[in-house]
Amino acid sequence: MALTNQRVDVPVIVDESKCLEKCHACIEVCPLDVLVKNPETGKAYMKYDECWFCLPCEKECPTNAITVQIPFLLR
C-alpha cells in the first residue's frame, strides 16, 4: 500500500534554541507518548499527531521550550 506524507499542523511546538539535549522531561510525562528526540539534533519534537492538549509537557519543561496549541481542528 502506498503511504503519503501529508503535512499536518501539530499542536506541540518545541523551540529548539531552548530545548536541552540531555533532558527528557516532556517525553517522560506525555500520556500519549507522542514526543521523541530527533537523533540528529537531540531536540524533542512531536512525532505522532495524537494530542490531548493536557499540558504536562509544557508545564514540566525546565526551559519553557514548549508551547501547546489547541489542535487546529478544535480551535
Binding site: 517522560e28 493536557c54 504536562p56
Partner: peptide, 12 residues
C-alpha cells in the same frame, strides 16, 4: 502504558 506521574483521567 503511560507514566504514572501524569496518566489517567486526572493527569493534570
Amino acid at each position: 502504558k503511560a507514566n504514572i506521574r501524569r496518566s489517567g483521567a486526572i493527569a493534570m
